[in-house]
C-alpha cells in the first residue's frame, strides 16, 4: 500500500514538474504564438542555475554556494528568463520561424556548454547531491513524498492562478490581440514586439523554475536529461491538452506523462532484452506520430482555448 502511494506520488510529482514547463510554454505559444524549439535548453539553464546556487561547495567546479532552495529557484527563474529575453530580443522582430531556429540553436548550445564547461556544469556526469526539499523528513518516505507532492501542487496552483489572472488582464488581452491580428493591435498603438518579448521572457522564466523544481525533486541532473526529446514531450503535452488553455496545459502534462510512463513496460515487453534500445526508439516514434495526428485531426487538443475577454465580464462562451 505504501509502495503504491509512493509510486503514485512520484508519478504525479514528475507530471507536475512537466506541467510547470507546459504552463511556461503556454505563455509563449498558447497566448502569444511564439514557437520555442529550445524548451530543453531553458529548462536546463534553470536546473543548473539552481543546482549551482544550492549545492554544497564542491572542489573541482565553481560553487556550489550552499544557498537555501528558495534562492536557487529564484535564481533559476531569473537565469532562464534573462536567456529567453536575449534570444527573444534577437529574433522577435524577424520572421516567426527565425525564433524557432534560434531557440533550436540555444538548445544545441546549452547542451554543448553542459558537456564541455566542466568547471561550471560537471561535464557529462552532471551534478549530484542537489538538496531535496523537506530532506529532514526523508526517514519517513511516505511523509517525504507527500510533502514534495504538496509543494509541487502548490507551485502549479500558484502559477495557474497567477497566469489566469494575467490572461484576463489588459496585458493578456493585448497578447491575444497581437496573436490574432497584429496589424490591428499595432494600429491601436500597441508595441507588438515589446509585448512578445515580455511574454517570451516570462515563459522562459517559468521553464527555468520548472527545471529547478525537477532537479531538486530528483536530486541529480545531467546533460542527457535535456535532449531535444524533452522539448518534444512538452510540445506533445501542450498540444494534446489544448494550447492556449492553462488547465489544458496541466491536463496534457499529466496525460502524456502517464502514456509515456506506462508505455515503457508495455513496449519493453514486446521486445527481447537485447532489443530494448529499439523499443525506446519506437516509443519516440509513437509520440511523434501522435503529435502529428493531433495537429491533423484535433488541432485544439483535449481542452481547447476558451474565449476570455476580461475578468470583469461574466463567464464567456466557448469558442465556436
Amino acid at each position: 500500500m505504501i509502495d503504491l502511494f509512493g509510486y503514485g506520488a512520484f508519478f504525479l510529482s514528475m507530471a507536475l514538474t512537466y506541467a510547470i514547463i507546459c504552463l511556461g510554454l503556454n505563455v509563449q505559444w498558447g497566448q502569444t504564438g511564439l514557437f520555442n524549439v529550445g524548451v530543453a535548453g531553458f529548462v536546463a539553464i534553470g536546473a543548473y542555475a539552481s543546482a549551482l546556487l544550492t549545492t554544497p561547495d564542491t572542489p573541482d567546479r565553481l560553487g556550489g554556494f550552499g544557498l537555501p532552495i528558495v534562492a536557487g529557484w529564484i535564481g533559476a527563474a531569473l537565469a532562464a528568463g534573462i536567456a529567453s529575453f536575449l534570444v527573444g530580443a534577437l529574433t522577435v522582430r524577424l520572421r516567426a520561424d527565425y525564433l524557432a531556429i534560434a531557440t533550436f540553436g540555444v538548445a544545441v548550445m546549452v547542451q554543448l556548454c553542459l558537456l564541455n564547461l566542466q568547471g561550471l556544469t560537471g561535464g557529462p556526469f552532471g551534478i549530484g547531491f542537489i538538496p531535496r526539499p523537506f530532506a529532514a523528513t526523508a526517514t519517513n518516505p511516505a511523509l517525504f513524498a507527500a510533502l514534495n507532492l504538496a509543494l509541487l501542487l502548490a507551485v502549479v496552483a500558484a502559477l495557474y492562478l497567477g497566469l489566469e489572472r494575467l490572461l484576463r488582464s489588459p496585458w493578456g488581452r493585448v497578447l491575444r490581440a497581437i496573436r490574432e491580428d497584429e496589424t490591428a493591435a499595432r494600429a491601436l498603438g500597441k508595441n507588438a514586439d515589446r509585448f512578445r518579448l515580455q511574454a517570451f521572457a516570462i515563459g522562459g522564466a517559468i521553464m527555468g523554475l520548472a527545471g529547478a523544481a525537477q532537479g531538486h525533486f530528483i536530486g541529480f541532473i545531467a546533460p542527457e536529461n535535456y535532449q531535444p526529446m524533452l522539448t518534444f514531450q512538452v510540445w506533445a503535452m501542450l498540444i494534446a491538452g489544448g494550447s492556449g488553455n492553462n488547465r489544458g496545459a496541466i491536463l496534457g502534462a499529466i496525460v502524456v506523462w502517464g502514456l509515456w510512463a506506462f508505455s515503457a513496460p508495455a513496449i519493453a515487453a514486446l521486445f527481447p532484452p537485447d532489443q530494448q534500445a529499439r523499443a525506446a526508439a519506437l516509443r519516440i516514434v509513437l509520440i511523434g506520430v501522435g503529435l502529428c495526428a493531433i495537429l491533423l485531426i484535433r488541432p485544439r487538443g483535449l481542452l481547447g482555448e476558451t474565449r476570455t475577454v476580461s475578468r470583469h465580464l461574466p463567464k464567456a462562451k466557448p469558442k465556436p
Partner: peptide, 16 residues
C-alpha cells in the same frame, strides 16, 4: 508555425 511544428514532429519520428 503549425507547419514548423509538424516538421519538428516528423523529424523526431523519422530519426527514431
Amino acid at each position: 508555425i503549425i507547419l514548423v511544428m509538424a516538421s519538428f514532429g516528423a523529424a523526431l519520428t523519422l530519426r527514431s
